[in-house]
Amino acid sequence: MLLLTCPHCGPRDETEFSCGGESHIARPSLEATDDAWADYVFFRTNPMGVTFERWRHAYGCGCWFNVARDVVNHRILATYAMTDPKPATSETAISNGLQQSAELAR
């Protein structure tokens, strides 16, 4: 059970949230090709590592926000607003997350 941090309400149990799937997917226009549209509707990146997804504090304030989560170990690397840009997926970002976990462990 994840511990997610709602930007409005703070850290809460996963049971208060609903996951809206992958974030930062641009919605194509009506003129999009079949392939581009199919990519938007059906295909997701599903990485083994850091994934960017949106969550809603469904049983709380109703706020949508973004979460960068490592799906291998469930570490939350970043929590940020819907309108914020996708954070860097560089080693730095990930190691910052690892550092946080290490601090927790101490």
Binding site: G20, S23, R27, R54, R56, A58, G62, C63, W64, M82
Partner: peptide, 11 residues
């Protein structure tokens, strides 16, 4: 209602 909210907040 939740769907409306999602489109407004996310898209």
């Amino acid at each position: 209602a939740a769907m409306f909210d999602e489109w407004l907040q996310c898209e």
